[in-house]
Design a protein around this nucleic acid. Structure first.
Lengths: 338, 338
DNA sequence: GTGAAAGCGCTAACAG
DNA sequence: CTGTTAGCGCTTTCAC
C-alpha cells in the first residue's frame, strides 16, 4: 500500500485519517488516494484499536433477546444510536445464565469495548454480574441498588396517561386489570392509575382493581368479575390482557367501546393495532430505552440524582375508547395507520 | 503481568492459551495463574486477533431488526450458534438503506470478521450489496442469483403440512387465504397446498384460493367470500390473517373449529398460542435460520447443489382444527404449552 | 512536507 | 522447560 503510492506508511496514515495540521503534498495525497482505490485497501480496525487501547465497540448483554417479541427493539435502538456515533454493537444473549453472563462480559472486556449495556426483557431490579463494572456501563430496562446509571420506562406516568384517556371521555368508574406479578410495572402502573383518579377527584375503590395473569388467558378469565363490577371503562395491564378481554366481553355481548372502553399497555403492534376495534394503549418505549442507554453511556445524556433516566411511555389512542355521552367519538389516531 | 509472575511474556502466553506440547514448569504455571488472579488480568483480544489476522467476530447485517416482531429470532439463533463456537455477533441494522449497508459492510470488513450473514426480515430475493463477497458470507432468509450460499425456510413443505393438518381431519373442501404480495411465500405455500391436495386426490379448485392483504384486516375482509364458498377448513397465509378471520367468523356466528377449521402460518407466539381457540399453525423457523446461517458460514453445514439450505417449517397443531366426523378431536399438542 | 523508528499486546518460531 | 526475537498493521513523536 505505502509502496504502491510511493510514500511512507506514516503518510498513508495521515491522509487516511485526514489529520488536521498535517502538511501533505497535493500529489502525495493524490497518489495515496489512488492506491487506496486500486488496491481496494481497507484499514485494519483491529490494529488501529490496538494502538489506541480501546475499540469502537459497545457491548449489549441481554437476558433474553427474543422472549418478548418487542425486546428486539432495545437492540434496535441501541444499534441505531451507537452507529450514529461510529460505534458498533456487540451482542450477547445470556438467557439469564450466570456462566454465559460472565463469559459474555469477559469477552467484551477483552475486546476493550467502549462500554456495556446490560438489559433485561422486562423492567425489574437486577443483581449486577461481577465484571460489569470493570467497564463503563448502564442498565437498560432494569436497575440495581448499586451506583450504576439506569434507563427505565416511566411506568407511573404511563399508568396515569392510560387512565386519563378513559377519564377524559367521561368515565368515572374505571376498572384496572393489573398483573399478579410483583414488579415495577405492577406498582408503577397502579400508582399512575391512582394518581389519575385523584386528579379527577374520583375516589379510589380497591374493589375495582383485579390482579390477573398478564396474558390473554388472564384477561379472558377476568371478564365475569369485571362485568359484575359495572365499570364503564377498564385499563389493562398490557395489550395481551386486553386481547383476552376482547374475546370475553364479545361472548358476553358487550361491545367495545360502546358498552365498555378499554385501554392497554405496551403497544404491541401485532396485537394493539389490529384488534377490532384497534386498541388504545400506552407504548413501552423499548427502542428509546436502547437509544437512551447508549446516550448515557457516551455521556450524551445525563441521569437524574437517583441515577435513573426515565423514558416516557407515550399514549397511543386508537378506537377502543369512546366517550360515555353520545356524540363523543374517539378520533382516528396517527398510530392507527400501518 | 509477566514480571509480576517473574516469567517471560511468552510463558504467560503459553499458559493462558493452554498450549499443548508446551512444557511449562509447575511452579512457573502456578505463579502465572496467581498473577492473573491478583492483577485481574485480561488478555487483549484486539492484539490477539491482530496477530492471527482475523477476529472471532461474525457480522450480521439485517435490513430490519424489528419490523416484524419475530425477526429478532434470527439474531437470537445466530448469536447462540456463534457463541457456541467462540464467536461474537456484530450486528448492524440498515433499514434497507444502501449507504448504511455499505458502511456496515466496510466496518465489518475492517474488523476482519470471520464472515458475514446478510439477512432480511421476510423471505425474498436480494441484490448483493457490493463488498459483501469480500468476506465469506451467507444469505439468511433471502437468496440471490449470484453464487452465494443461502439459508431459507421451506415454504412449500410448510404449505403442504399446513394443508395436510386439515386433510387428515377429513376436510376436503379447503380454502386458502393467500397473500396478495408476490413472494417466495406466496408461491411456495400455494405449491405446498396444491401438492397436499393432489396427494389426497382432491381436485385443485382455483376458486378456493383468495388473495388477501396479509394481516388481520385482510383475514377479516375475506370472511364473507370465504363463507360463501362453503369450505369446512381454511389455510391462512399467516397467523395475522387467521386472527382477523377469527373475528369475522365469530361475528357471522361460525364457530372455530366446530364449523370451520383453521390453520395459520408463522407461529407468531403472541397471537397463535393465545387466540380462542389456540391456532394450529406452521412455524417460520427464524431461530433455526440464524443458527443454520452461522453453521454454513463456519463450514459445519453444507448447502445443496443449488446453493440453498432449506430449513423446515414444523407444524404446530393446536386447537383450531378438529375433525369433521364426530369423535375426532384435535389432540393437545406440545406446542400448545406456554 | 515526509520518512524513520518506536511501540500498542500478543503469538510463534527459535534458541538456549 | 523457558526466554529472546521478530513481527501483526497501525499511530505518533521526532528528525530531516
Amino acid at each position: 500500500m505505502a509502496e504502491a503510492a510511493k510514500v511512507s506508511i506514516s503518510t498513508v496514515s495521515l491522509v487516511i485519517n485526514n489529520k488536521v495540521g498535517a502538511r501533505i503534498g497535493d500529489d502525495a495525497r493524490r497518489r495515496v488516494q489512488q492506491a487506496i482505490e486500486e488496491l481496494g485497501y481497507r484499514p485494519n480496525a483491529l490494529a488501529k484499536d490496538l494502538v489506541s487501547g480501546r475499540s469502537r465497540f459497545i457491548g449489549l448483554v441481554a437476558d433474553a433477546i427474543a422472549t418478548t417479541p418487542f425486546a428486539g427493539q432495545i437492540i434496535h435502538g441501541a444499534q441505531d444510536e451507537a452507529w450514529r456515533h461510529g460505534f458498533v454493537l456487540l451482542v450477547a444473549n445470556t438467557e439469564g445464565n450466570e456462566d454465559a453472563e460472565r463469559e459474555a462480559l469477559a469477552m467484551m472486556l477483552e475486546h476493550k469495548v467502549r462500554g456495556i449495556l446490560y438489559s433485561t426483557w422486562y423492567h425489574r431490579q437486577v443483581d449486577l454480574p461481577t465484571g460489569l463494572t470493570e467497564a463503563d456501563c448502564v442498565l437498560v430496562n432494569c436497575f440495581s441498588t448499586a451506583d450504576v446509571p439506569a434507563v427505565v420506562p416511566d411506568e407511573e406516568t404511563g399508568g396515569h396517561d392510560a387512565t386519563t384517556m378513559l377519564i377524559e371521555q367521561g368515565h368515572r368508574r374505571i376498572g384496572f386489570l393489573n398483573t399478579t406479578t410483583p414488579s415495577p410495572a405492577h406498582d408503577g402502573r397502579l400508582a399512575g392509575y391512582r394518581r389519575a383518579l385523584a386528579e379527577a377527584a374520583i375516589d379510589f375503590d380497591p374493589d375495582l382493581v383485579i390482579d390477573v395473569q398478564p396474558d390473554q388467558e388472564g384477561g379472558y378469565a377476568a371478564v365475569p368479575a369485571l362485568l359484575r363490577l359495572g365499570v364503564s371503562g377498564v385499563f389493562c395491564h398490557n395489550d395481551r390482557v386486553a386481547m383476552g378481554l376482547y374475546d370475553g366481553v364479545r361472548e358476553a355481548g358487550v361491545a367495545v367501546p360502546a358498552d365498555l372502553a378499554v385501554v392497554g399497555f405496551d403497544n404491541q403492534e401485532v396485537i394493539a393495532a389490529h384488534l377490532r376495534p384497534p386498541l388504545s394503549t400506552v407504548a413501552l418505549p423499548h427502542y428509546e430505552l436502547g437509544q437512551a442507554g447508549v446516550r448515557v453511556l457516551l455521556g450524551l445524556d445525563e441521569v437524574g440524582d437517583d441515577g435513573r433516566l426515565t423514558v416516557a411511555c407515550p399514549p397511543v389512542p386508537r378506537g377502543s375508547v369512546a366517550g360515555l355521552r353520545p356524540g363523543v367519538i374517539a378520533e382516528p389516531s396517527p398510530g392507527a395507520a400501518r
